[in-house]
C-alpha cells in the first residue's frame, strides 16, 4: 500500500497550514486536535498580553544607541480599547525627544506581539544598518504600548525624513511572533495608511530577516529618491504588501 493510500491527505498537508483532516470524536474534535488548538491560542494570547523586555532589546541592539518612549496608553487594557492613545506619545516622552537631522529613524513598537519584537526586531535593525551605512541613522526608539502612527510623532519631533516602524503584528494561531514594518516618508501626525509601505509576516516561518532587510532597504532607497512612500511606491515583487482583501477592510489595523 502506498503512503497516499494510508493517508490520502499526506500530499496536501504540505500545501496548507490549515487544520485539515483532524478526524472526529462523534461530531467533535478529537482530544489531540482540541489541545493543539488550545496551545496555539494560549501562545497567541500570551504574545498579546506579555510585555516586551526593553532592557534586553536594548542590549540586543548594542552598539546602536537607544531611546525609550511610551504612548499615552498607560497599560494593555487601555491600549486595546483606545487605539487613539496608542498612536500618541505621553507628554513626558514627547518632551524628552532630542531634535536632530536624520535620513532614517527606526522605531520599535510593541504593538500586539511582544514575542515578535523580542525575537525579530533587533536582528532586522542590525541587518538594515549593515546595508545602509551611507545614511545618517538616528538612535533606535523603543516604544511601549505603541501603534504604527506613533512613529510619525516621534520621527517628526526628532527631525527624520524617513521612519521605519517595526511592530508586533496581531498574532494568529500559526504564528504568534510575526513582525510588521511600516515605512513612511516625511513622517508627521495625521499621515494615512495609504502613505506608508508595509512589509508584513516577518518571522521564522514567514519572511526571513535577510529578505525583509533587502526589501526594506530597497524601499528606503527608492523612498529617498522619489521623496514619497505609499501607494505610489510599488515594488516589482507582488508579495511585498501584506494580504489585502475586503474582509480586512472592515478593520482598522493601525
Amino acid at each position: 500500500m502506498s503512503d497516499t493510500q494510508k493517508d490520502p491527505w499526506a500530499r496536501f498537508r504540505s500545501a496548507t497550514r490549515a487544520r485539515i483532516a483532524l478526524g472526529r470524536s462523534g461530531d467533535a474534535l478529537p482530544t489531540k486536535a482540541l489541545l493543539e488548538f488550545q496551545l496555539a491560542h494560549a501562545r497567541a494570547r500570551d504574545a498579546v498580553h506579555s510585555a516586551v523586555d526593553f532592557d534586553r532589546l536594548a542590549a540586543d541592539l548594542s552598539p546602536l544607541e537607544c531611546l525609550r518612549v511610551h504612548s499615552a496608553a498607560p497599560d494593555r487594557p487601555t491600549y486595546l480599547r483606545r487605539p487613539d492613545l496608542g498612536r500618541r506619545l505621553d507628554p513626558a516622552s514627547a518632551a524628552g525627544l532630542p531634535a536632530g537631522e536624520w535620513d532614517l529613524l527606526f522605531v520599535i513598537a510593541d504593538g500586539l506581539s511582544a514575542a515578535a519584537v523580542q525575537v525579530n526586531a533587533a536582528p532586522l535593525v542590525h541587518a538594515c544598518v549593515a546595508r545602509l551605512g551611507h545614511l545618517r541613522i538616528g538612535p533606535v526608539v523603543l516604544a511601549g504600548q505603541a501603534r504604527v502612527a506613533l512613529g510619525d510623532e516621534v520621527a517628526s519631533a526628532m527631525g527624520a525624513r524617513l521612519v521605519a516602524l517595526l511592530v508586533g503584528e496581531r498574532p494568529g494561531l500559526s504564528a504568534a511572533d510575526s513582525l510588521g514594518v511600516y515605512l513612511t516618508w516625511d513622517p508627521k501626525p495625521g499621515r494615512a495608511d495609504s502613505e506608508r509601505n508595509c512589509i508584513s509576516n516577518v518571522h521564522a516561518g514567514g519572511l526571513s530577516i535577510q529578505t525583509a532587510a533587502d526589501k526594506l532597504c530597497w524601499l528606503a532607497t527608492e523612498a529617498a529618491r522619489l521623496k514619497l512612500t505609499g501607494v505610489a511606491l510599488k515594488e516589482d515583487a507582488p508579495s511585498l504588501a501584506g494580504p489585502d482583501n475586503d474582509k480586512k477592510q472592515l478593520t482598522d489595523r493601525s
Binding site: R19, F37, A175, K247
Partner: peptide, 12 residues
Amino acid sequence: VPGADDVMLNYQ
C-alpha cells in the same frame, strides 16, 4: 473553516 483557524486572516 478547518479546525476553526483561518490561516490567512489570522482569526478564529
